[in-house]
Amino acid sequence: MASTDKPADPETGKEVLPSKASCDDTPPPPKAVDLFAVDVALRFLVFAASLTSVLVIVTSKQTVFQGPIPFEAKFENSPAFIYFIVALSVAGLYSILTTLASLSVIWKPIFSTKLLLHFAFWDVLILGLVASATGTAGGVAYIGYKGNEHVQWNKVCSIFDEYCKHIAGSLASSLFASVLLVLLVWLSTFSLHKKIPK
């Protein structure tokens, strides 16, 4: 059985207390990673990309004449493009609200852990919404660009060239917003992981 007696100094016979250095051998806990400034910048970029995407597709009207008959291409003619606009508008509104929430955490960091958890959940949801809308609109745009000879769907981008350029620019901007949302999910998850005590 181990003795609980404290060691004694052989010269004086008095008890020797362990040195402070031997008690503090454990390293200090790591500092929590605070990346809310990066979070604010990414969320602002999501807002800018979403707004750009919506504005570009809304202004994508073009009228061409084949003989005396006018043909008009506009986003309202496709349910996929309407869904795309709604989804990107929701993402833009969400990014404004979460940018303000991130700024409030920079000023008062007491709720940072709870907010990071909410961000992780909601960012995944908005990412799914934006990615599905981008894929849906991209599928319709691809048929417009390439056509489908198996079902006799003609390509229309050779006729409505300006309209198709607007659609392509809008899709590129929404794809950029999707990538930013992926980075936000990773950032929130990484920040939460660093707050877990080891």
Rank of each mutant, 00 (worst) to 15 (best):
A41R: 11
A41M: 06
R43D: 01
R43H: 14
R43T: 01
L45C: 05
L45W: 00
V46Y: 06
V46N: 00
F47A: 09
F47W: 07
A49W: 00
A49Q: 06
A49I: 00
A49E: 05
S50W: 05
T52Q: 15
T52M: 14
T52R: 11
S53Y: 10
S53H: 08
L55G: 14
L55T: 09
V56M: 11
I57Y: 04
T59R: 11
T59F: 14
S60F: 01
S60P: 02
V64N: 07
V64S: 05
V64W: 06
F65M: 12
Q66S: 15
Q66G: 14
Q66H: 09
G67E: 07
G67M: 07
P68G: 07
P68E: 14
P70R: 05
P70M: 08
A73N: 09
K74W: 01
S78H: 12
P79H: 13
P79T: 14
F81R: 10
F81P: 02
I82H: 03
Y83K: 10
Y83G: 13
Y83V: 12
F84L: 09
I85E: 05
I85P: 02
V86S: 13
V86I: 15
A87D: 12
A87V: 10
L88N: 10
S89G: 15
S89V: 01
V90N: 02
V90P: 00
A91N: 09
A91K: 09
A91I: 10
A91W: 08
A91R: 09
G92H: 04
L93I: 14
L97A: 15
T99H: 05
V105D: 03
I106G: 04
K108D: 13
P109C: 03
F111V: 09
S112G: 01
T113Q: 12
T113C: 06
K114Q: 13
K114L: 13
L115M: 12
L115C: 05
L115P: 00
L117I: 04
L117C: 03
H118A: 15
H118P: 03
A120S: 13
A120I: 03
W122M: 12
D123K: 00
D123A: 01
D123L: 03
V124D: 12
L125Q: 02
L125D: 01
I126T: 07
I126R: 03
L127R: 06
L127P: 03
L127F: 15
G128M: 11
G128E: 10
G128A: 12
G128S: 11
L129M: 01
V130W: 04
A131D: 15
S132G: 06
A133C: 10
T134F: 06
T134M: 01
T136H: 08
T136I: 09
G138K: 07
A141L: 08
Y142F: 02
I143W: 07
I143D: 06
G144L: 10
Y145S: 10
K146Q: 14
G147S: 04
G147H: 02
N148Q: 08
N148V: 09
N148Y: 11
N148C: 06
E149M: 14
